[in-house]
Structures are given as C-alpha cells and as structure tokens.
Design a protein around this nucleic acid. Sequence first.
DNA 1: CCACTATGAT
Length: 835
Amino acid sequence: MELLPSLIRMQASCKLFKPCALRSLVSFKIVYYSTIDTHSQTLGSSSSFPSNDDKFVVDSLISIFTKQPFTPNNPELNQLSPKITSQVVESVLKGLNSWKNAQIFFKWALNQPGFKHNSYTYNAMASIYSRTQQSVPLRVLIKDILNSCCTFAPGAFGFLIRCLGNVGLIQEANELFDKMRLIGLCVPNIYSYNCLLEAISKSGSIDLMETRLKEIHSLGLQFDKYTLTPIMQAYCNSGKFEEALSVYNTMHKRGWLDAHIYSMLAVSYCKWGKVDKAFELVERMDNLDIKLNEKTVCVLIHGFLKQSHVAKAVQLFAKLQKAGFTGDVSVYDALIGGLCRNKEIDKAFCLYSEMKELGIQPDVGILTKLLSSCSDTSIIAKLLEEIPEHEDDETVLRLYNAVLKGYSNDGLMDEACHLLQKLMGTKSSTDSLIDTAFKVKRMILPNTASFSIVIDGLLKKGMLDLALSLFIDMQIIACKPNILIYNNLIDELCKSNRLEETFKLMREMKESGLEPTHFTYNSIYGCLCRRKDVAGAIAILKEMHSCGHHPWIKYSTLLVKELCAQGRALEACHFLSNMVQEGFLPDIVSYSAAFSGLINIHEVDKALHLFKDLCSHGHCPDLAAFNIMINGLCKANRLTEVDNLLNEIATRGLFPSVVTYNLIIDGLCKNGSIDKAMLLLSKMLEENREPNVITYTTLMDGLCRAGRPDDALLIWNEMQRKGCTPNRIAFMALIHGLCKCCKPTAALQYLREMERKKMEADQYIYVALLSALLCDLNFPSAFEILREIVDRGFLPGSHDKNYMIVRDAVLKLSKDDRTSSGIQVLIEEGKLPTC
DNA sequence: CCACTATGAT
C-alpha cells in the first residue's frame, strides 16, 4: 500500500529534468489537457500544409464517401486511388461525418494498391471510434495494427492508448502496450506511460498502476507532473486519502500543482466529507489566481449541499459569481433546495429573484421546493403564476401539494384544509386570498399525497378528529389511503389511548389489502403497554409473531417499568416469561427493569435468582444489569456478595463504571464503613474513573452521618477544585448534613450561596436549619429562617410531622426579646396561625 | 425502532 507513494517520493527527490526532458515536458503541457481532436492535430498529423492537388482529392473522396448509398465501383474512385497518401487519408477521415462512412473509406483505402496505413491514419481512425464510443471496431482496429507491423512513435502510441482508455478498453490498452514493445513496433517513453496510467486510473486499478510505476522506475524513466496526475486521481477515486495526499505533497514540493490538481483534491475533500478543507483549497486557489472551471464549481456546490453545508455552498457560489460565473438551473435548484431544507426561506427567495433577473426560467422542481417551505399566501399566489398554461395536471397537482406541504409545515392547517376542500369542490369560492391564488388555475382532484400531507399536518398539531374526518372525506372521493396514512392515524389514536378506533382502522386496513407493518403493530403494542394491559399486550404479541414482526424493546420495558412502579414486579416477571412463551426473547434491558422492580419490593433473592438464570441461559447481562444487582445487594447490606459480582464483571471483560463505584460507595457509607468508601474514591482517581457530583454528594452525606462535618467540607472543596459544580441535591445534602452535625451557621452560609445561584431548597432543609439554629440558641437567624418558611409557603399543616417543630420554634421565638416583636408582626399579618 | 443503572429528603 505504502509502496507507491514511497516510490514517488524516491524519484521526486532524484535530480530531474535533463534539458531534453524539459523540452518534452513543455510539449506535453500543450497536449495533455486538450481534447483528442486538437491532440490529433499536434501529434497525429504528418504534415500541416496539403497541396492544392491533395485538397482536390480529399474533397472528392469526402463527397463520394458521404453520398448514400456508397458504390464501390464508382469509376471516379479508380482515378483517385493512385493519388492517395497517408496525409490525404487522414484529412478525408477527419472530414467524414459518421464513423460508419469513415470505416468504409478506411477499409477501401487499405485495399488500394501501393497504399499502406501508417500510425497517423490508424490514429485518425482510432480517434473517430473513440469519440463515438465504438469499442468493438476499435478492438478490431488494434488487432489490425499489430498485424500490420506499423511502427509508432512514442507520442503517436500514447495517443492511441488514450483512444482506448477513453472507451474503457483498459485491459486492451495494457496488452497492446506490452505487445507493441515486445514486437518492437514502439519504444514507449514517459509520455506513452503517462497515457497508459491515465487509462488505468480510469479503471481504478491501483495494483496495475503500481506495477507500471515500478516498470517506469526500472526503465530509468523520470516521473513528471503528468505521471503523478493520474496516480493522484486514482487514489482520490478509490478513497485512499493518505496516499492521495502524499502524492499531492510531492507535487507541491516540485511546484507541479495546477488548477486541475487543486480541483481534483477539492472535489475529493468534498466527497470525503471534509468541506472545510475543500473550501480552504478554493480560497488558496483564489489567492493564487487559479481559476476553477464551471463543472468543478458545480460539483463542489452540489457536494457542499449534500453534506448540508448550505452556507458554504452559497458562499462559494457568490465568490464565483464575482469571477463572472453564472449558474444554470441545476445550481440554483440545488442551492434553493439546500436553503429551503435549512429553513432559510428569505435567502432562497433572493436566489429565486436573482435567477429570474438573469433570465433563467425557474422550473417545476424549484417552484416545488419554494412552495413547500413557504406559507405566505400572497407569495404562493405569485409563485403559482409561474406555472405555464400548458402544464399537465399531474405537475400542477404536484405544485398544489407543495403548497399544502408549505402550509402544513408551518402549522397553518386552516389554510391547508381550505385549499384541500377547494380542490375537492366542497368549498365554494369566497374572497379569500387562497381563492384568488387558485382562481385562474384548473381544478384538479387531490390525490393520496395531498391528503397524506394535510392529515400529517393535522396530527402534528394534535387535531386528530379533523384528521379522521379528512380520512373519511378522501374515501368519499374514491381516493385510496396508503399505509403511511393508516399508520400515522393509528399511532395518533394509540397515543390518545383510543384503542377501539385503532382496532377498527387496522381491520379496515387489512380489508383494503394493506398489510399492517411493524410500525402499526408497535403503535398498538405501545398503547397496551402504557395501559399496563398485560393480556392485551400478549394477545398482540401472538399476532405479531404470526406475521413476523418484532416488538420494540422500549415498549416491553415500559410495561415492566410501569408495573414495577406500582410494586407489581412479580407480574412484570410473569409478563416477561409469557413473552418467551410467545417466541420473543426479551432484551436484557427489559429484564433489568424487572430486577430493579424486584429489588424495590425487597425481593433481592428473586432478582438474583433470575439474574443468574439468565446468565446460564446465554443471556449477556450488561453493566447496567450488574449495577442494578449491586444496588440491590448494597441496599440489603449484603456487601460481601457485591465482591462476587465485581469479580464476574471482570471475568466478562467489563469494567466498573462511575455508577458502579457510586453504588458501592453509597453502600459502604450507609453501612458505616466510611473509610472504605474514601478508599474507593482514591481507587477511582487511580483508575481515571472521574468521580462526579453524585460520588461527592454520597461521600459528603456519609461523612456527615459519621459525624465528620469538617471532612465533608474538605470533600466539598475538592469537588469544586476538580471543576465539578454542585447541584441542588449536593447543596441540600451538605446543608442538611451540617445541621445534623450541629453546624447551623456554616449550613446557613451554604443556603445563602444556594439562593444566590437561584436554586431552591426543599422545605425540609428550612425546617432542619430552623431546629438546628434554635438548638444553637441563634434566635435572630432562626427567626429569619422562619420568615422564609412563611414567605415560601413552606409552613407545615397540622398533620405534617414538621408541624410540632415549627410550632415549638414560634413559641420559643415569641418568648425571646430579640424576636418576639417580629413574631407578633407575622401573626398580625395573618401569616402565622395563632397557637 | 437503544432501552435498563447511581446522590439529598419524603
């Protein structure tokens, strides 16, 4: 793979350009990018100035061979026959209008006594076949060449090879190349090789190219720019990024870069999705005053748009307009399409006006794009005026549908319905803008697509019943609903929990010959799962199984979670085993939800049993499943068993995640093993498992529980130092922890910090602070908190367990000189109930 | 149409 670039580098670093090589390079420059026609003038002509006599012969022959039908025994031919030379034959071939006539003349000339084709006449014929893509006669021609023992100059031979490459006869070109050399009919030079490489690059055969390149090297021929160009092209085409760049760099070093190479690389960057690089290259070309050709510009613009870099495409277009480039309809179509997709309607309309000013007629495609992204009726009316009178019904309906799409996309469903009803003829004309817009146009019955657009629009806005009535309307005018319409209606009915209508629609769907899809079934399955209708879910699973559709994991999981949320984890497990009976093996994710449910109802052993059962039946638990089990064991204080699971995680090639660590740290904290928990924190740091807010919060809570508020504060600072911002829960855990440790003053500071950050603490935090401050005999602060409790509406009712705490506080504060008057005011304002 | 797992308090 690396061989080719290294070879190229090797040669590139050698001393290049003997004087003669330089001369030939200059001449290549002239011919290489010219078309085959001009090429033949450079390399394929034996003499530039035919004599007057020759001119007469040429004209006569052209006229004879152009006349239809051609008669071989034309007496004129006998007179001309002795006068033909290779120059004459060449000129006649170029003057004949069809390859067939040229072929007839070519064969006639061959049979004339004393005449022999040479490399120039062969090339002239080959060029005609090549231009007209006649590969079969071209193949015959090269056989003739080999049999004729006609010698070819290296340049002429290169030309012939290019003719073959042009019609895709790569293998033939390769074989001819070797045979000619072997027989001694040609001694190829670097130009001949360049032509061969160019042909090979078209076939994309990197291997073949490599072989030829080694051959060039071993013959001692020097590479030039035109050797590397096809090589780079081939690399670009086959997506060999590194290699292409390596060739590019070599060419850069040698100063061989030109517009063609730049364009090739820009287009390739575009294909490789590196739009920025492509754009950079275009800018570099701009600075170097190298012009891109129009075709390249179009390719780049289309490429940018395909990668949805609309802005860059527009920018490129503007840049090139300045350079005098005017786009055609297809460029405008692409740009307008991109802008519409990007919802940049104003810019799209700018381009639209621009093209009209330039006299480029917008086509139906452009109108469709603009209409589908526009909902301004007066603009729509203007656009519709563009429709030519003779346009067929199908096209006009496509444009009407685009209008419907535009309205629907912008949620203007009144307008969309109004237009649709007008098309159906169920709405008589009034004076609305829509009517004006469509007055001049023919009335065409809407089709399925029209209804599909409007029904979808209605569904997106939650107007299900209107959508359903349109669905009936369409059937009245004998318009057949398609699967998409059925599915979307069914999905929306399911989301609204309207199951009876759903089933009715599905029946109709089947009767009309449309098979429900996995989407249809899963809409219904999802609805049943949301309803926790286990029996219904199983019934639909049965039906799905019979027609080969699979239930979506998210819905099975949803049902399990919903049941578990109500403590019905055992039923959830039952459902999962029912699924198995129906032939669907639930995913580990659904099982995990069930484990979690079992653990929540303290059925850790059942969960553990099911977990091990699954493992032994080939199910592969993921890390989340392990975490759930670890959580269960931790909460049940069975920490020794956690170790077993950790070992199993390792055996399965998994790695404990932050979640795993957090769970175990929490388990250790709640178990009173705070020091072990702290050790785990250091282990996380060692293993580069970044601790998060939850890790730190868990530890702060644990330290406060262990009566170590100062250590908790150290952790708090450590967390912030690590750039981990505390959330509401972290603040509350710290404040509450400090209160429990009788540090209300410190706790109060953090409450204030929290308030500054616009985070609201729960009621219990205020209550905890209130009692801690009272305990600390800090009555003024306690009063402040009490007032906040009142202001925030956190005053507990008489059945609240905090009621006694607050009542007690009010009593104490009203007896203290510093706060009694404040309490009095609160009571007078009616904010505190008298006790 | 890839979902399941971890922190405070109640």
